[in-house]
Amino acid sequence: MNYLMRRLATFPLVLLGVSIVVFLAIRMVPGDSITAMLGTEAGLLTPPQRDALAAYFGIDQPWFIQYWRWLLGLFQGNLGISSTYGRPVLGVILERFPLTLELALLSMIIALVVGMPAGIFAATHNEKLSDLGVRVVAMIGQSTPNFVLALLIIYTLSAGFGVLPAMGEFSPLWRDPLRNIGQLLLPAVTLGFAFAASVTRISRSAMLDVLSDDYVRTARSKGVSARGVIWRHALPNALIPVVTLSGIEFGYLLGGAVIVEQIYALPGLGRMVLDAILQRDYALVQGSVLFIAFNFMIVNLLVDLAYVALDPRIRLSEH
C-alpha cells in the first residue's frame, strides 16, 4: 500500500516534466497554427490580420504565459480547446481512446494466445525441427514492418477476394459489435503478429531457463506428469519476463499505432496526435501526450503489481 502511494505520488511530477518538454518541443518547431491552416497563403496576411489570427489561436502571448494559462486550466480539469475540432480536448481524446484501447487489447490477446503456447511448445521441443519452425516464423514476425504486413493484407483481400473491412468511420463495440470486430480484427492481427513473435521468443527462452531449474527436476522426480510440470510448476515463473514485455508493448500500443491506424483509416489516438502535430493544434498535442504518458505510467504500475502476484518472493514496499 505504502509502495502504491509512493508510486502514485511521483505521477504529477513526471506528468509536469512531460508537459513542459512537449510544450517547448512543439513550439520550437518552425511553423504555427496560422501557417498550418493557410499554408503559403499565410504570406498574404497583413500584420493586423496575422495578429487577429494569433489571438484566435491563443498564440499571441509569450510561451511561458501560454504555458501558465494551460497549467491553470489543467488544475481545473480543463485541457483546453482543440483548434481543429473546436471542442474540449479531453472530449476529443476520450472519443478516440476506446478504439485505441480495444485495438491494444485485441492485439495483446492475439499475441498472448498465439505467442505463449508457441513459445512453450518450442521450449518443450527444444532443438527439434518443430522448435526451429516456430523460431523461424517468430523471426519473420519480428522483422516484418507492420506497414508491409498491413498493405499486403489489404492488397490480398481487396484484389484477391474483393473484400475489405469497412474503412473511415469507426463503429464502437457497443453500437455494432459485428462491424466493430470486422473493422479491428485485421489491424489487430497486423499489430499482434510482431507482438506474438516477441512473446513467443521470450516465453520460449524463459521456459527453457525454468525447465532446467532444480525445482523442476525435483517435481519430475516426484512423478508429476509432464503437463503438470509445465503448467503448474514452470509456467508461473516463466511468466515474469512475458508480463514485462507485454506490459511495455501494451503501454506503447495505448499511445496509438500511428502507421496501422493510418493504413486502415482508423480514427484512433495515434492518428489524432499525428494530425494534431501536422495542424499545429497545440492544445490537442499537449493534452493527448499527457494522456498517453499517464496511461503508460498506469500500465507500468500494474506490471509491477503483477510481479508480486506472480512471485510471492517479491515484496515491493520494503526497500
Binding site: 483481400l157 481487396s158 484484389a159 474483393g162 475489405l164 474503412m167 473511415g168 493510418q262 493504413i263 483509416a265
Partner: peptide, 18 residues
C-alpha cells in the same frame, strides 16, 4: 466523405466497391 489517409487503401476500398 471518408478520410482514408493512405491512397493505396483508397484504391483497395474502390476495388471492393466500398
Amino acid at each position: 466523405i471518408s478520410v482514408l489517409p493512405d491512397e493505396t487503401a483508397i484504391l483497395a476500398a474502390m476495388r471492393t466497391k466500398q
